[in-house]
Every structure is written in C-alpha cells, then in structure tokens.
Design a binder for these strands. Structure first.
Length: 940
RNA sequence: GCGAGGGUGGCCGAGCUAGGCCAAAGGCGGCGGGCUUAAGACCCGCUGGGGGUAGCCCCGUCGUGGGUUCGAAUCCCACCCCUCGCACCA
C-alpha cells in the first residue's frame, strides 16, 4: 500500500482528539510527572515553518517522556499583550496598502474576512484558530487544549494583577521616570513600529555644560563632556530662534525647540521671551569649569533642533570646530556682518586637552589636513570627525589640567567625570536624537521623560535568589549558562508598563498596561489552574492558591493541582530570549514560589531560516506552517525539522530536502508494511540475527542517551539512519525470508518504531498497531536487551565486512573477474604477536619485540616476527583496538568458512579457505601476508 | 564597541569539554554500475588531488597566522569573518 500520510494522519488526529489522549488531570499513581512548556506564540500574524520547530521540539520531548510512562502535561496559550495586534488592526482599518498586502498575499487572508479582523480580539482569534491552532493540530502536537487561554482573558488579568500586587507589596517595583519615544503630535509614547522616519535612530543622553551668561545659564549639549577644558568659544546659529526660559527655577537660554524638548523631559519649563541670535553673538560666556571667558560666535552648522542649539567649540579636538574657526579667520566678513571684530578669532588658540598616539598637539588640525578639508560643508568632515572621536575615546590620555583624571583614558573616566560635575551643578543632561524622527502620523518624535514603574531586577536579594534558582536549572545547550549568569548580573531596573495596548492594567493605576515581557513570567502556573478558572476568579483567589497558609477548599484543590504539575521540568524557548524573557522567568519564579517549585530545565532553540535567509513576513519570506504539512504530511515536516539540526542550532527550510525527507519516509513505510504483512517468523536465531539485535540494542542505548540530552537529531540519526545501515548489511548477509530473520526484522522494527514515535508519531503508531495490535505511543520506550550484547558478534561481523572491502579493493585495482577466491587466515604464531601488541601499554616496535624475543618460538624467526610486529602495530592502529581485543576470542577460520556461501554470492566466485599454517594451495605465495584479523587473499 | 555563541569536505552537519585508531560518522546532492521493456523504487561502488594489474602509496586539508607536543580539527595566543543580544519590538 502506498504511503498516504493524509489519511493515516487524519485517523490518528481523530483518535487523539475523540479520546482526549493529551488531556491530563492529576494522577497520583503516575510514575513520574513531567511538565513541559514552550514560549506561547504571539498571534499577530500566521504561523509559519519557523514556528513549527519551536512547538514540535517540546512535543517530541513530551512524547518521549510519555513513552517512559510519565504523566505529561504540554499546554498552549496565546500571548496578545501589548501593541502589535492593536497596531495591525489600526493599519488594517485604514486599509494601509502594505498591511493589506501582507494579510492577503503572505498570510493568505481572504478579503471577505477582513471585517472579522477589525477588532484586536477578532484579529488575534482569527490567526489563533485559522493558523496557529489549526497547524498545531495538523502537526499532531500533544497539547492539552482544555488549558488554552489568552493573556487578555479577565481571569488571566486577575492572575497578573495578583502577581504585580505581590511584587509591589514586597518592594520589588519602583516608580521613576524613563525616557521614551514620544510623538509630539499625538502626544503619546510610540513604539518602533509607529515610526515612519528614523526607525533605527536611538536617542542619546547629551551632557549639558552650563555656561554662565551673567545670571543666566546657556547650556551647551555635548557627547564629549570631558572636552570642557578645551573650549575656546561657543557657536550659535545666527538664523535660529532662541528663547529665554525658566527651567527648574533657573533662567536658561536655549533654542525654541530645545525648550519644548526640555519640557517633555520632566522639567518645569516656562518660556519667558524670544531672544534673537544676534543678541548673543559677540557676547561672552563663562566656562563653568575653567571660569574662562569665551566669545559666542556665529556658525551656520549649528542645528537648532539638535541639543540646545548652542554648542561649545573645541578646535583642538573637533574637526568641525577647527575648520569653522579657520574659515572665520580666512573670511572675516562672516563676523563683520554681525558687527564683531575679527580680531577675536585671531586671538583664539586651540587648547589641547589630551594626547593620542599618532597625533601631535592639535589632532583636529592634523586630521583635517590629512583629509584635505578646508570647507565646513565638506562631507568628508563627518568621516574625519568619526575617526578622530574614535581614537580619542579609546586612546585619548587626558593632560595634567585634568587633575585627578590626568593620565586616564577618556573611555575609562567619561562617566565618572560627567557625574561628578553634574553633582556639582556644572553639568546637566538631556536626551535627544541625532537626526529627526518622524511618527507615522507625521508628528515629530522627541524623547520624553515619563513616569513609569520598574521591576527592580538589580535588587541584591532578588538577584541572589535568582542566581540560586539558575544553579538548579538544567540548561541546554550547556554552553548557554554563561549567558544567563551574565544577564542576571547585568539586568538593571526594567520598565514594566506601557501606556496602551492589550493586557493587564497596572492594579493601582489603570492608565498603564503591564508590558508583554513582564506579564509572561509565571504563566506556566496558570496552565495548571486553567481548567478550574471561571469568570468569578479574582486576585484574592490566586493569593490563596499560591501564598495563603490556610486556603479555602477550592483554593486548596487548585493548589494541589498546581503542585502536582509544578515545577516546570523543561521550558523551551528561543536563544534570543535568554537575555530577557527566560531570565525574567527565573527571577519571578525565584521570588514568588518556593524553591522546590523553581524551574528544573530550560532548553533554548535556534532560529529558522528560509533558503538561507532569515524568515520575514513583511518580505514575504515565509512558508505558512500548514502548507508543507498538507502537501507532505506532518511526519515529514517533523522528521525534516528534527533531523536537520539539533534544537539549539539554526535550521534552514528548503523545499528539496523536505521532498527528499518525504521519500525517505515513504520508503520506510513501504518496506516495513511489507514486513508486517508477511509471515511473522519464528524465534530461531542465527549469529547474524543476534548481531543485528545487538546493533539494535546499541542504537536503543545511544538514542536514549541523546534524548536525555535533548539531542533529538542525534537520536533520530541513530534510530533511523544508523539502523538503516545495519539493516542493509543484514540483508546482504542473510536470507531474509528465513523464519528467524522474519522474527528478527520484526523485532527490530518494533523497537525502532518506538524510538521514532516521538518524532513521527503518526506513521509509527500506525505501523506499530498493525504489527502488534497497539499503537506505539502506549507501548513504552524500549529497553536494552542484555541477551544480545555480545561484542564477539560485532568483531566477527567487522571481520567479514573488512574482508569484503579488501576483496573489493583488489577487484577495483586489478579490474579482474575471478572465478576462485582463496582466503588464508594467519598462522597461529601471529596471534601471539597480536596478543603482545594488544597487551603492550604503548605498543612500540621495540617494546613488543623485546617481549617476544624472550620466547624461543619467536626467536627462531626473528626477522619475520619483526616485520609482523610492525605490520600488526599498524593494523591495530588503523582499526579499532577494541575490535582486536574481541578478535582474540574468535576462530577466524570458522567465521570465514561459515561465510563462504555469502562471499560466493557477493563475488560470484568459488571460495576456498585455508590456514597459513597448512595451506595446501598457495600458487601466488599469498598466505604469508595474512595477519590476524586480516586474512590474505588470492584471486584467480 | 560590549556580552554570548560559532567558523569542518559540493551542501547540511558529527567530532572537538578526556590530543594519536580522523581523510574526518551520518544524511543530502552528484557520478558510475546492477536490476528493470522503461521510469521510479531498490541494491553495489565512487565522490579533495595524484599514482598503482593485489587489499596500497604520495601530496594537500577542518576560518587565517603563530605556539605547545613525538603527534592537533581537537590545547594555548593573536587576527579575520558570521550569528544572537545590548533593555521599552515581542
């Protein structure tokens, strides 16, 4: 019967579904309980093949544990917190072309269904039902769907409310301000997705150096506060608008735009009056650090929409400033129009503040010269600036004028320097972008300081608790542990709320929503309770379940279920979530639950690529999850994903290999169905049968070890391909219609189906049921049968295999077609030499010879023995030493004679076997070449 | 730039935490042969280069360069390149 995955898979899906195979309630009699979770998906689009492995890997593990008799819970839910879905709905409602294109062309949504998608929940529901859940069910994921929920469900929100109230009570949340991207038009914070221009732009914190202008402050923004001692003058844009404003009680002069920005950044700003640049040009300001009096000069390069619109000039170290001053010198008219005496510029001397290797006193002058720049508008100026700034930052050594900082590298002390003078009141700071950022609505985006709540991940107690929690986690792959440790040490305070979006409002301030990475830290616990939660649950109930000393009966029952499943045995997630979600997961578990309930294992997975490139919905570079399943079947998709890479490695989805995988499975199906439909045979075993059963045991062993380490690829490799190799040899070696062979093949198949069941559950269930009457998944994981672990059988088989290879090699070289093959086993004394080689710790020629020459029977043919020792050392070196150890126990003559009919079949020639000691026929004088384990051969 | 991981044959990938049995598992792809009316499937062989009428020999090779060692894909150092993360996208 041809392989027809569609019908087989449908049958099993129906059975699983109708009989509720994966719906599990606590069973106290279960041998062991395994709780497997995976990061719940975010259904703001369709599920594609990149997601498939994410959910299939935990399924493979869940199925593996079930075969071991565990009661396994693998649940699923939907993360819809935050803004992506809301944004998608907004863009759909506006029929934004890009959004319509992605929905129709990439996600294949019928336009007739658009109305369904025009609410956030409708949008989420659509993709949950039509894409994620549909595909997951097609794939045969062994999920207990009764526990499904979304993070926007009222009872989930109560759960999160409980979590945050608890953390709040424990002082692990704190209120503070935080800079955010803020649309000045919509007057609200915006996310990266909302940005039209400058999406890549990141705001920076500028230092404001508070120059004095009488009683007034003129703050100048800089990214290099340490250059303050090198300032010779200030630059102001003669055409820009400036204002005098009261800022936090002081009077400042800044550009009009800067005043608006400062207002957004949690400062009390009151604009007092506009002030023209002309009023300031030519005036003097006092450097707050050096107390030097410096002139304000005009410069058109000063951008009033960047920083404060007034900058300090450090000609020794800033190519821009150097070139501008030079141009003012060569063309004094630029100053004269503002009524300034050009002599001022003549008097300005660059002030070097640091030394860098490879530069002289005035690095800016040098680099400008090297680039040949004379014009302030020269585009090369930017490059020169970048180069010099880099050198100065990483290699600039501050000069003596810097007192305690003298001799230090800029990179090392900038922050300290900055904060010291900030504390002294000479510096301040503001956030700004370096280029304009525009919102989708067209409004300007600025940096606003906003009140927010933080999770205090840098709290020492919390941190150390989390470190302890990490110690108890089985991290896979093991080399990811460093990343966790590093993250725990590195996390600071995490802003955990947003202004809008789906999800749970902050319990004590419902203007805010708890953000997605913060409402997904302990939801695994929610799965355990989900079947019992209805609409009347409130946060008090969760408190009773998780914390109360004397819970109500209802809460106690729920706590019992929670504790039945908990802790999470393995959490599966993605590599890139180690630095946030997975570490947060550890933090919150460490805080909210008792140590026995802390996470036991985390396995992180690599990324998926499509034909070598990262998958991208917007670029249309995705394959929807259900497509290949519908075309090739779920087993093929699962098998492909599990054999193409280990879970933590990246995998590449390519169509051809998937089709090849289908062929592999189809072949497997056909061949094994034939075996099942044929006679069942008898347990009358010959050595070759026992050999194969021994190989099977080895595979069972190694596949089990691999599965324990989540090395699914390696396990599959062993169970499928390695056994396939052994079977190929077996078929070559023996008559497979023998009753003993039938029995053996069926036994191998039986265990093989079990080993492969977690990977390809449909086909293995079907074949196993046809073979034995029961599905593979109820039959249990196979064990090792000690009866068939005879290494001598392996040694004998490799002797035969090597012999076949050797004969083949000779045939290839000689291009002959012999009618007779003579085989000579080595003389008895040579076995003694082999023994001596094997027994030697370090088999060197000298050592072995020394040992042998003490015996008369070797001494009388010293030269021959010497040659033999060399040959045997090479031979042992060449092949596995273990093989030779077992070889000592074998009777080569018997093995080869027993293989004569096999060799005759293989080579279509008569076989004669002799011992070198008593060879009656040796026309080509070959017998003497025989070595133990490597008989001499003569073709005729 | 910082943190973490990685670079193996046409491709995917073992091996590298216990250095020698590693020209390097396995799969895929390719080539040749067998079987077949034929295609597919299946079976056998080859697949770094060169040579060989006897099972073999020579050269090169595991990002690059250097080092340790009798001996390195495996250990150490430097460099180059790639991926992920660097906090309000989830």
């Amino acid at each position: 019967m041809e392989y027809d995955p569609a019908s087989i898979e449908q049958e099993w899906r129906d059975r699983w579904d109708e009989e509720g195979w994966y719906e599990v309630d606590p069973d106290e009699d279960a041998d062991d309980v395994t709780f497997v979770t995976v990061a719940y998906p975010y259904p703001n689009g369709a599920m594609h093949t990149g997601h498939v492995r994410t959910f299939a890997v935990p399924d493979v593990y869940a199925r593996y544990r079930r075969l071991h008799g565990d009661q396994v819970l693998y649940p699923m839910a939907w993360h819809i917190t935050g803004t992506p879905i809301i944004g998608a709905v907004e863009r759909l409602k506006e029929r934004e072309s890009e959004q319509v294109r992605i929905l129709t062309e990439v996600y294949e949504v019928d336009e007739a269904d658009f109305s369904e998608l025009e609410t956030p929940m409708g949008f989420a529901r659509y993709f949950i039902e039509n894409s994620y859940k549909y595909s997951m069910q097609l794939l045969g994921l062994s999920i207990d769907w009764r526990r499904e929920f979304t993070t926007n469900d009222p009872s989930y929100r109560e759960f999160i409310s409980w979590q945050y109230e608890t953390l709040h009570e424990r002082g692990l949340l704190k209120q503070d301000t935080h800079p955010v991207n803020f649309c000045t038009n919509e007057e609200q914070p915006v996310t990266t997705h909302d940005i039209l221009e400058g999406e890549e732009e990141e705001f920076q914190s500028y230092t404001l150096v508070k120059f004095r202008f009488g009683e007034t402050v003129i703050p100048m923004a800089t990214l290099r506060p340490e250059t303050v001692r090198g300032v010779t003058n200030a630059f102001i844009n003669p055409d820009a608008e400036y204002v005098r404003a009261s800022v936090d009680g002081e009077t400042w002069i800044v550009s009009a735009r800067a005043a608006e920005k400062l207002d957004l950044q949690e400062r009390t700003v009151e604009v007092l009056e506009p002030i023209g640049a002309a009023e300031l040009i030519g005036e003097s300001v006092i450097n707050p650090i050096t107390k030097d009096e410096l002139p304000i000069l005009p410069a058109s390069f000063v951008d009033p929409s960047n920083g404060t619109g007034i900058v300090m000039s450090v000609p020794a170290h800033s190519p821009d400033d150097w070139v501008t001053l030079e141009s003012l010198r060569t063309d004094p008219s630029q100053l004269e129009v503002h009524g300034i005496d050009s002599a001022i510029v003549e008097e300005l001397e660059p002030i070097p503040i640091l030394d860098i290797e490879g530069y002289g006193e005035i690095p800016a002058a040098e680099i400008v010269d090297r680039y040949g720049i004379t014009d302030p508008d020269d585009p090369a100026l930017e490059e020169a600036t970048q180069e010099l700034y880099n050198h100065e930052f990483h290699g600039g050594v501050l000069l003596e004028m810097y007192g305690e900082f003298a001799g230090e590298i800029v990179e090392e002390i900038r922050d300290t320097y900055q904060s010291q003078y900030t504390a002294a009141g000479h510096f301040d700071s503001m956030y700004d972008f370096s280029t304009p950022v525009i919102c989708r609505c067209g409004g300007r985006v600025e940096v606003a300081e906003q009140d927010t709540w933080f999770l205090r991940y840098n709290d020492p107690d919390w941190r150390s608790k989390t470190e302890r929690a990490l110690e108890g986690v089985d991290v896979q792959p093991t080399n990811a542990r460093d990343q966790y440790e590093h993250t725990i040490g590195w996390l600071e305070e995490w802003p955990c709320i947003r202004n809008y979006g789906l999800g749970t409002p902050l319990p004590w301030d419902d203007d805010f929503i708890i953000e997605p990475l913060s409402d997904s830290t302990i939801y695994m616990a929610y799965y355990t309770l989900a079947p019992h939660l209805d609409d009347d649950v409130d946060r008090a109930l969760f408190n009773e379940i998780f914390l109360a000393d004397d819970p109500s009966d209802r809460a106690a029952a729920m706590r019992a279920e929670f504790e039945h499943w908990y802790p999470v045995d393995v959490r599966f997630s993605a590599n890139d979530l180690i630095t946030n979600h997975l570490t947060f997961y550890l933090y919150h578990h460490a805080e909210l639950f008792d140590e026995p309930l802390w996470p036991q294992g985390i396995t992180t997975m690599g990324m998926g690529f499509l034909r070598g490139k990262s998958m991208s919905s917007s670029a249309g570079r995705v394959v929807l999850a259900h497509k290949p399943v519908e075309r090739y079947g779920a087993d093929t998709v699962r098998f492909f994903l599990m054999t193409s890479a280990e879970p933590w490695q990246d995998f590449d989805w390519r169509d051809d290999p998937v089709a090849d995988t289908y062929n592999q499975l189809a072949r497997f199906w056909r061949r094994n169905l034939e075996l099942i439909d044929g006679p069942s045979g008898e347990r009358e075993l010959t050595p070759i049968d026992e050999w194969l059963l021994g190989r099977l045991n080895r595979v069972v062993e190694s596949a089990t070890d691999s599965m324990e380490e989540f090395e699914i690829r390696a396990a599959t490799q062993a169970a499928f391909f390695e056994l396939e190799d052994d079977l190929r040899w077996y078929r070559r070696r023996t008559e497979t219609d023998r009753p003993g062979a039938r029995w053996t093949l069926r036994e191998v198949l039986r265990k093989r189906l079990l080993l492969l069941n977690p990977i390809i559950p449909f086909m293995t269930n079907e074949l196993h049921e046809r073979l034995t009457g029961e599905p593979a998944e109820v039959a249990g994981w196979p064990g090792v049968d000690d009866e068939f672990m005879d290494p001598a059988l392996d040694a004998a088989e490799s002797l035969r295999g090597d012999l076949v290879d050797d004969i083949q090699s000779i045939l290839d070289v000689t291009e002959s077609d012999p009618s007779l093959i003579r085989i000579y086993t080595a003389a008895e004394w040579k076995r003694g030499v082999l023994e001596a080689v094997i027994e030697a710790d370090e088999p060197t020629h000298g050592e072995v010879m020394g040992r042998l020459m003490s015996e008369e029977r070797y001494r009388h043919r010293g030269d021959q023995v010497s040659d033999m020792v060399g040959a045997i050392i090479d031979l042992v070196h060449d092949r596995s030493r273990k093989t030779f150890e077992h070889l000592m126990d074998l009777d080569e003559m018997e093995i080869i004679e027993g293989s004569a009919s096999f060799l005759e079949r293989e080579f279509g020639a008569d076989i004669e076997v002799y011992s070198e000691d008593s060879a009656t026929e040796d026309p080509a004088d070959r017998a003497k070449h025989a070595l133990p384990g490597r008989p001499a051969i003569h073709l005729e």
